[in-house]
Simulated scan of single mutants.
Amino acid sequence: MSDQEFLRYPDLASRTLGGAVVHANDEAFAERENLIRPGRATFDASDFGHKGKVYDGWETRRRRTPGSDWAIVRLGVPGLVRGVVVDTSWFKGNYPPEISVEATGVEGYPTNAELEAATWTTLVPRSPVGGDRDNLFAISPESEAGSRRYTHVRISMHPDGGIARFRVHGTPVTDPRLLVTGGLDLAALENGGLIAGCSDEFYSSPTNLIGPGQSRNMGEGWENARRRDDGNDWVEFDLAGQGHIRLLEVDTSYYLFNAPGAVSLEGCDASSADPGRPDSWFPILDRVDVRPDTRHRIVVDSPAATRIRLNVYPDGGVARLRAHGVLTEDGYADVWLRWVNSLPTSQAHGALTGLGLSPTDVESVLVTRPASKLAELPAILAEAVRATRPVS
Protein backbone atom coordinates (compact mmCIF):
# COMPACT_ATOMS: atom_id res chain seq x y z
CA MET A 1 0.00 0.00 0.00
CA SER A 2 1.34 3.44 -0.96
CA ASP A 3 1.94 6.26 1.48
CA GLN A 4 -1.22 7.99 0.20
CA GLU A 5 -3.60 5.14 -0.59
CA PHE A 6 -4.74 4.53 2.97
CA LEU A 7 -6.24 8.04 3.12
CA ARG A 8 -9.28 6.80 1.21
CA TYR A 9 -10.34 4.80 4.26
CA PRO A 10 -12.43 6.50 6.98
CA ASP A 11 -10.80 8.00 10.04
CA LEU A 12 -11.89 5.52 12.70
CA ALA A 13 -10.72 7.82 15.50
CA SER A 14 -12.75 10.84 14.42
CA ARG A 15 -14.81 12.63 17.00
CA THR A 16 -17.74 12.56 14.58
CA LEU A 17 -17.74 8.74 14.75
CA GLY A 18 -17.60 8.73 18.53
CA GLY A 19 -13.85 8.60 19.02
CA ALA A 20 -12.38 10.00 22.23
CA VAL A 21 -8.97 10.71 23.71
CA VAL A 22 -9.49 8.84 26.96
CA HIS A 23 -6.13 9.34 28.66
CA ALA A 24 -2.86 11.24 28.34
CA ASN A 25 0.10 11.55 30.65
CA ASP A 26 0.46 15.30 30.05
CA GLU A 27 -1.50 18.11 28.38
CA ALA A 28 0.07 21.13 30.06
CA PHE A 29 -0.10 23.54 27.13
CA ALA A 30 -2.93 22.27 24.89
CA GLU A 31 -5.63 19.73 25.58
CA ARG A 32 -5.56 16.20 24.23
CA GLU A 33 -9.14 16.31 22.87
CA ASN A 34 -7.96 18.51 19.98
CA LEU A 35 -6.17 15.52 18.46
CA ILE A 36 -9.33 14.02 16.94
CA ARG A 37 -11.36 17.11 16.18
CA PRO A 38 -12.70 17.19 12.61
CA GLY A 39 -11.15 19.62 10.16
CA ARG A 40 -7.73 21.18 9.91
CA ALA A 41 -6.08 22.86 12.86
CA THR A 42 -6.31 26.67 12.98
CA PHE A 43 -3.77 29.20 14.19
CA ASP A 44 -3.84 32.78 15.45
CA ALA A 45 -0.40 34.26 15.98
CA SER A 46 -1.76 36.81 18.45
CA ASP A 47 -3.70 34.35 20.60
CA PHE A 48 -1.99 33.84 23.98
CA GLY A 49 -3.46 32.45 27.18
CA HIS A 50 -2.37 32.06 30.78
CA LYS A 51 -0.27 29.02 29.80
CA GLY A 52 1.34 30.68 26.81
CA LYS A 53 0.68 30.40 23.07
CA VAL A 54 -2.71 28.86 22.31
CA TYR A 55 -2.45 25.90 19.92
CA ASP A 56 -5.24 23.96 18.25
CA GLY A 57 -3.69 20.61 19.08
CA TRP A 58 -2.19 18.56 21.90
CA GLU A 59 0.98 19.97 23.48
CA THR A 60 2.93 18.80 26.50
CA ARG A 61 5.44 20.62 28.70
CA ARG A 62 9.17 20.57 28.00
CA ARG A 63 10.34 17.28 29.44
CA ARG A 64 13.24 17.48 31.92
CA THR A 65 13.32 13.79 32.80
CA PRO A 66 13.81 10.64 30.72
CA GLY A 67 10.74 9.18 29.05
CA SER A 68 8.09 10.11 26.50
CA ASP A 69 4.62 11.62 26.39
CA TRP A 70 1.61 9.69 25.15
CA ALA A 71 -2.15 9.78 24.60
CA ILE A 72 -4.65 6.94 24.21
CA VAL A 73 -7.46 7.26 21.67
CA ARG A 74 -10.55 5.07 21.79
CA LEU A 75 -11.64 4.46 18.22
CA GLY A 76 -15.19 5.54 17.46
CA VAL A 77 -15.48 2.52 15.20
CA PRO A 78 -13.13 -0.42 15.89
CA GLY A 79 -11.44 -1.93 12.88
CA LEU A 80 -8.32 -2.74 10.87
CA VAL A 81 -5.84 0.13 10.74
CA ARG A 82 -4.47 0.88 7.27
CA GLY A 83 -2.45 3.97 8.14
CA VAL A 84 -2.12 6.94 10.46
CA VAL A 85 -1.52 10.64 9.95
CA VAL A 86 0.45 12.58 12.55
CA ASP A 87 -0.35 16.18 11.66
CA THR A 88 2.03 18.74 13.21
CA SER A 89 0.43 21.79 11.58
CA TRP A 90 1.60 25.07 13.16
CA PHE A 91 4.02 23.27 15.45
CA LYS A 92 7.33 24.52 14.05
CA GLY A 93 9.72 24.80 16.98
CA ASN A 94 7.88 22.55 19.38
CA TYR A 95 6.97 19.39 17.42
CA PRO A 96 8.26 15.99 18.59
CA PRO A 97 11.39 14.77 16.79
CA GLU A 98 10.05 11.20 16.81
CA ILE A 99 6.75 9.38 17.36
CA SER A 100 5.55 5.81 17.71
CA VAL A 101 2.05 4.30 17.48
CA GLU A 102 0.65 1.20 19.17
CA ALA A 103 -2.78 -0.40 19.22
CA THR A 104 -4.80 -2.79 21.35
CA GLY A 105 -8.18 -4.51 21.30
CA VAL A 106 -10.07 -4.80 24.57
CA GLU A 107 -13.52 -5.90 25.71
CA GLY A 108 -16.12 -3.54 27.10
CA TYR A 109 -15.28 -0.14 28.50
CA PRO A 110 -11.89 -0.37 30.23
CA THR A 111 -10.56 2.00 32.86
CA ASN A 112 -7.35 3.92 32.26
CA ALA A 113 -5.47 1.48 34.47
CA GLU A 114 -6.80 -1.48 32.48
CA LEU A 115 -5.73 0.17 29.24
CA GLU A 116 -2.23 0.80 30.50
CA ALA A 117 -1.99 -2.88 31.48
CA ALA A 118 -3.31 -4.11 28.13
CA THR A 119 -1.21 -5.85 25.49
CA TRP A 120 -0.20 -3.30 22.84
CA THR A 121 0.93 -4.06 19.30
CA THR A 122 3.31 -1.74 17.45
CA LEU A 123 1.75 -0.15 14.37
CA VAL A 124 4.45 2.45 13.74
CA PRO A 125 7.88 1.91 15.33
CA ARG A 126 9.76 4.90 16.68
CA SER A 127 10.12 7.13 13.60
CA PRO A 128 11.18 10.71 12.81
CA VAL A 129 8.57 13.35 11.96
CA GLY A 130 8.74 16.87 10.61
CA GLY A 131 7.11 20.01 11.92
CA ASP A 132 4.13 21.86 10.40
CA ARG A 133 3.19 19.04 8.03
CA ASP A 134 1.22 15.83 7.59
CA ASN A 135 3.41 12.86 8.51
CA LEU A 136 1.92 9.74 6.89
CA PHE A 137 2.58 6.16 7.95
CA ALA A 138 1.02 3.33 5.95
CA ILE A 139 0.45 -0.07 7.58
CA SER A 140 0.54 -3.16 5.39
CA PRO A 141 -2.65 -5.26 5.50
CA GLU A 142 -0.46 -8.34 5.06
CA SER A 143 1.38 -7.64 8.30
CA GLU A 144 0.32 -9.06 11.65
CA ALA A 145 -0.34 -5.56 12.95
CA GLY A 146 -2.46 -4.70 9.93
CA SER A 147 -4.66 -7.78 10.13
CA ARG A 148 -6.11 -7.27 13.60
CA ARG A 149 -9.19 -5.39 14.84
CA TYR A 150 -8.34 -2.68 17.38
CA THR A 151 -10.43 -0.66 19.77
CA HIS A 152 -7.75 1.75 21.07
CA VAL A 153 -4.63 3.37 19.67
CA ARG A 154 -1.78 4.99 21.61
CA ILE A 155 0.43 7.68 20.12
CA SER A 156 3.72 8.52 21.83
CA MET A 157 5.97 11.55 21.36
CA HIS A 158 9.69 11.13 21.96
CA PRO A 159 10.38 12.94 24.14
CA ASP A 160 7.67 15.68 24.11
CA GLY A 161 6.12 18.40 21.94
CA GLY A 162 2.93 19.14 20.09
CA ILE A 163 0.67 17.38 17.55
CA ALA A 164 -2.27 19.12 15.92
CA ARG A 165 -4.31 16.17 14.68
CA PHE A 166 -4.06 12.38 14.77
CA ARG A 167 -5.95 10.38 12.13
CA VAL A 168 -6.39 6.61 12.18
CA HIS A 169 -7.58 5.44 8.77
CA GLY A 170 -8.88 1.93 8.40
CA THR A 171 -11.63 -0.56 7.69
CA PRO A 172 -14.48 -0.86 10.21
CA VAL A 173 -15.09 -4.33 11.64
CA THR A 174 -18.35 -4.57 13.56
CA ASP A 175 -18.89 -6.79 16.58
CA PRO A 176 -21.46 -9.40 15.46
CA ARG A 177 -22.61 -9.86 19.05
CA LEU A 178 -24.20 -6.43 18.79
CA LEU A 179 -26.12 -7.24 15.60
CA VAL A 180 -29.15 -8.56 17.41
CA THR A 181 -31.94 -6.06 16.72
CA GLY A 182 -33.27 -6.70 13.24
CA GLY A 183 -35.32 -3.59 13.90
CA LEU A 184 -35.18 0.08 14.71
CA ASP A 185 -34.49 2.56 17.48
CA LEU A 186 -37.74 2.32 19.41
CA ALA A 187 -36.98 5.46 21.41
CA ALA A 188 -35.94 7.76 18.55
CA LEU A 189 -37.94 10.93 18.11
CA GLU A 190 -37.97 10.44 14.34
CA ASN A 191 -39.56 7.00 14.81
CA GLY A 192 -42.28 8.27 17.14
CA GLY A 193 -40.60 8.15 20.55
CA LEU A 194 -41.43 10.87 23.06
CA ILE A 195 -40.34 12.07 26.48
CA ALA A 196 -42.97 11.02 29.02
CA GLY A 197 -41.40 12.53 32.15
CA CYS A 198 -38.16 13.79 33.66
CA SER A 199 -36.88 14.43 37.18
CA ASP A 200 -34.78 17.45 36.26
CA GLU A 201 -33.84 19.39 33.11
CA PHE A 202 -31.99 22.31 34.64
CA TYR A 203 -29.32 22.71 31.95
CA SER A 204 -30.82 21.12 28.84
CA SER A 205 -33.87 19.28 27.54
CA PRO A 206 -34.22 15.50 27.78
CA THR A 207 -35.66 15.57 24.26
CA ASN A 208 -32.07 15.91 23.09
CA LEU A 209 -31.54 12.32 24.19
CA ILE A 210 -33.65 10.94 21.34
CA GLY A 211 -32.70 13.46 18.66
CA PRO A 212 -31.14 12.36 15.37
CA GLY A 213 -27.42 11.87 14.92
CA GLN A 214 -24.66 12.19 17.48
CA SER A 215 -24.31 15.17 19.77
CA ARG A 216 -21.66 17.71 18.79
CA ASN A 217 -21.09 19.22 22.23
CA MET A 218 -22.25 19.01 25.83
CA GLY A 219 -25.14 21.37 25.16
CA GLU A 220 -26.78 18.89 22.79
CA GLY A 221 -27.52 16.26 25.43
CA TRP A 222 -29.54 16.15 28.65
CA GLU A 223 -27.92 17.56 31.77
CA ASN A 224 -29.50 17.98 35.18
CA ALA A 225 -28.46 20.06 38.19
CA ARG A 226 -26.06 18.71 40.80
CA ARG A 227 -28.07 16.53 43.17
CA ARG A 228 -27.59 17.17 46.89
CA ASP A 229 -29.81 14.42 48.34
CA ASP A 230 -29.86 10.62 48.36
CA GLY A 231 -32.01 10.19 45.23
CA ASN A 232 -31.23 9.91 41.55
CA ASP A 233 -32.35 11.57 38.33
CA TRP A 234 -34.34 9.88 35.59
CA VAL A 235 -36.11 10.28 32.25
CA GLU A 236 -39.11 8.33 30.96
CA PHE A 237 -39.72 7.67 27.27
CA ASP A 238 -42.79 6.54 25.39
CA LEU A 239 -41.53 4.16 22.70
CA ALA A 240 -42.61 4.30 19.08
CA GLY A 241 -44.74 1.25 19.80
CA GLN A 242 -44.82 -1.87 21.92
CA GLY A 243 -41.59 -3.70 21.34
CA HIS A 244 -38.73 -5.81 22.63
CA ILE A 245 -35.45 -3.96 23.20
CA ARG A 246 -32.39 -5.90 22.11
CA LEU A 247 -29.56 -3.34 22.17
CA LEU A 248 -29.15 -0.26 24.35
CA GLU A 249 -26.82 2.61 23.66
CA VAL A 250 -26.11 5.00 26.53
CA ASP A 251 -23.90 7.74 25.14
CA THR A 252 -22.06 10.06 27.55
CA SER A 253 -20.07 11.84 24.80
CA TYR A 254 -18.65 15.24 25.84
CA TYR A 255 -19.58 14.69 29.49
CA LEU A 256 -16.06 14.41 30.89
CA PHE A 257 -16.46 15.49 34.51
CA ASN A 258 -20.25 15.47 34.84
CA ALA A 259 -21.29 12.06 33.49
CA PRO A 260 -23.35 9.72 35.70
CA GLY A 261 -21.48 7.21 37.81
CA ALA A 262 -23.95 4.49 36.86
CA VAL A 263 -27.21 3.91 34.99
CA SER A 264 -30.07 1.43 34.91
CA LEU A 265 -33.11 0.97 32.68
CA GLU A 266 -36.65 -0.18 33.49
CA GLY A 267 -39.63 -0.94 31.28
CA CYS A 268 -43.40 -0.93 31.49
CA ASP A 269 -46.14 -2.14 29.15
CA ALA A 270 -48.71 0.62 29.48
CA SER A 271 -51.13 -1.32 27.28
CA SER A 272 -51.77 -3.69 30.19
CA ALA A 273 -50.34 -1.96 33.28
CA ASP A 274 -50.44 1.46 34.94
CA PRO A 275 -47.08 3.27 34.67
CA GLY A 276 -47.99 5.14 37.84
CA ARG A 277 -47.72 1.94 39.89
CA PRO A 278 -44.20 0.92 40.94
CA ASP A 279 -45.03 -2.78 40.51
CA SER A 280 -45.82 -2.19 36.82
CA TRP A 281 -42.13 -1.70 36.05
CA PHE A 282 -39.61 -4.45 35.31
CA PRO A 283 -35.81 -4.32 34.98
CA ILE A 284 -34.26 -4.23 31.52
CA LEU A 285 -30.74 -3.27 32.54
CA ASP A 286 -29.56 -3.66 36.12
CA ARG A 287 -27.47 -0.85 37.55
CA VAL A 288 -24.11 -0.73 35.78
CA ASP A 289 -21.17 1.67 36.01
CA VAL A 290 -20.60 3.93 33.02
CA ARG A 291 -17.58 5.85 31.76
CA PRO A 292 -17.32 9.53 30.86
CA ASP A 293 -17.28 10.53 27.18
CA THR A 294 -18.17 7.02 25.97
CA ARG A 295 -20.77 5.35 23.78
CA HIS A 296 -21.86 2.29 25.79
CA ARG A 297 -23.54 -0.43 23.68
CA ILE A 298 -25.16 -3.15 25.77
CA VAL A 299 -27.10 -6.22 24.65
CA VAL A 300 -30.36 -6.78 26.54
CA ASP A 301 -33.49 -8.90 26.02
CA SER A 302 -36.52 -7.11 27.38
CA PRO A 303 -40.13 -8.18 27.74
CA ALA A 304 -42.60 -6.24 25.63
CA ALA A 305 -42.60 -2.57 26.68
CA THR A 306 -44.25 0.65 25.60
CA ARG A 307 -42.41 2.91 28.04
CA ILE A 308 -38.90 2.90 29.48
CA ARG A 309 -37.17 4.80 32.27
CA LEU A 310 -33.48 5.68 32.24
CA ASN A 311 -32.09 6.13 35.76
CA VAL A 312 -28.79 7.97 36.28
CA TYR A 313 -26.91 7.68 39.58
CA PRO A 314 -26.87 10.03 41.27
CA ASP A 315 -27.08 12.66 38.52
CA GLY A 316 -25.15 13.75 35.43
CA GLY A 317 -25.35 14.30 31.72
CA VAL A 318 -26.18 11.88 28.92
CA ALA A 319 -25.83 12.77 25.23
CA ARG A 320 -28.07 10.15 23.60
CA LEU A 321 -30.15 7.10 24.47
CA ARG A 322 -30.85 4.51 21.79
CA ALA A 323 -33.18 1.56 22.35
CA HIS A 324 -32.78 -0.67 19.32
CA GLY A 325 -35.27 -3.47 19.04
CA VAL A 326 -38.26 -4.96 17.25
CA LEU A 327 -41.91 -4.01 17.40
CA THR A 328 -44.38 -6.65 18.49
CA GLU A 329 -47.27 -7.46 16.17
CA ASP A 330 -49.48 -5.13 18.20
CA GLY A 331 -46.80 -2.46 18.31
CA TYR A 332 -46.33 -2.62 14.56
CA ALA A 333 -50.08 -2.34 14.02
CA ASP A 334 -50.24 0.65 16.37
CA VAL A 335 -47.52 2.46 14.41
CA TRP A 336 -49.48 1.92 11.22
CA LEU A 337 -52.77 2.96 12.82
CA ARG A 338 -51.20 6.13 14.16
CA TRP A 339 -49.99 6.96 10.67
CA VAL A 340 -53.19 6.07 8.83
CA ASN A 341 -55.35 7.90 11.34
CA SER A 342 -53.30 11.07 11.11
CA LEU A 343 -52.76 11.32 7.35
CA PRO A 344 -54.25 14.45 5.79
CA THR A 345 -57.02 13.47 3.40
CA SER A 346 -55.15 14.78 0.39
CA GLN A 347 -52.06 12.74 1.26
CA ALA A 348 -54.07 9.66 2.20
CA HIS A 349 -55.31 9.15 -1.35
CA GLY A 350 -51.82 9.00 -2.80
CA ALA A 351 -50.28 7.09 0.09
CA LEU A 352 -52.94 4.41 0.31
CA THR A 353 -53.37 3.88 -3.42
CA GLY A 354 -49.60 3.34 -3.46
CA LEU A 355 -50.21 0.37 -1.15
CA GLY A 356 -52.60 -1.19 -3.65
CA LEU A 357 -55.90 0.20 -2.42
CA SER A 358 -58.53 1.28 -4.93
CA PRO A 359 -60.19 4.72 -4.66
CA THR A 360 -63.21 2.97 -3.15
CA ASP A 361 -61.01 1.24 -0.55
CA VAL A 362 -59.38 4.57 0.31
CA GLU A 363 -62.76 6.14 0.94
CA SER A 364 -63.61 3.20 3.20
CA VAL A 365 -60.50 3.90 5.23
CA LEU A 366 -61.25 7.60 5.49
CA VAL A 367 -64.75 7.06 6.81
CA THR A 368 -63.46 4.41 9.24
CA ARG A 369 -60.92 6.76 10.83
CA PRO A 370 -59.90 6.88 13.56
CA ALA A 371 -59.50 3.13 13.72
CA SER A 372 -58.49 1.68 17.07
CA LYS A 373 -57.35 -1.71 15.81
CA LEU A 374 -56.17 -3.30 12.60
CA ALA A 375 -59.35 -5.35 12.19
CA GLU A 376 -61.33 -2.14 11.71
CA LEU A 377 -59.42 -1.28 8.54
CA PRO A 378 -60.47 -2.59 5.12
CA ALA A 379 -59.09 -6.09 4.66
CA ILE A 380 -56.78 -5.10 1.80
CA LEU A 381 -55.05 -2.47 3.97
CA ALA A 382 -54.86 -4.73 7.00
CA GLU A 383 -53.21 -7.38 4.86
CA ALA A 384 -50.74 -4.85 3.43
CA VAL A 385 -49.73 -3.88 6.96
CA ARG A 386 -49.15 -7.49 7.96
CA ALA A 387 -47.17 -8.19 4.81
CA THR A 388 -44.71 -5.37 5.43
CA ARG A 389 -43.88 -6.31 9.03
CA PRO A 390 -40.23 -7.43 9.30
CA VAL A 391 -39.53 -10.89 10.63
CA SER A 392 -38.12 -10.50 14.15
Rank of each mutant, 00 (worst) to 15 (best):
P390K: 05
L327T: 14
D132T: 09
H296P: 08
T181M: 00
G241M: 07
R15A: 10
R61N: 13
P359F: 05
V299I: 09
P10Q: 07
K51H: 15
I195W: 00
W339F: 10
R338D: 15
F48H: 07
E236F: 00
S253V: 04
T294M: 14
Y313S: 05
V73Y: 08
G49A: 05
D251L: 01
F29R: 14
E33Q: 14
F237I: 13
L256C: 00
L366P: 03
T65I: 10
R133D: 00
L209H: 09
L355F: 05
W58P: 14
A117V: 03
V326T: 09
R307D: 07
E27T: 08
L186E: 07
H23Q: 15
F237L: 14
G162E: 11
R165G: 08
V129Q: 00
T252D: 09
T207A: 12
A305L: 04
I298R: 13
L136K: 13
A164F: 03
A351S: 08
G108E: 05
T171Q: 13
A103R: 12
D301T: 07
A323Q: 04
I245Q: 07
R216K: 13
F48L: 02
F6I: 10
G267E: 11
D175G: 07
P66M: 01
I163A: 03
R277K: 15
S253H: 11
P10R: 05
G325D: 09
A20C: 12
W339S: 12
S271H: 14
V263Y: 11
D330G: 14
A164Y: 03
V300A: 08
D274F: 09
R64V: 02
V86P: 01
A20D: 10
T368I: 00
L184V: 12
R297K: 13
A371E: 02
G219S: 11
H169W: 04
L366H: 03
P66G: 02
F43Y: 11
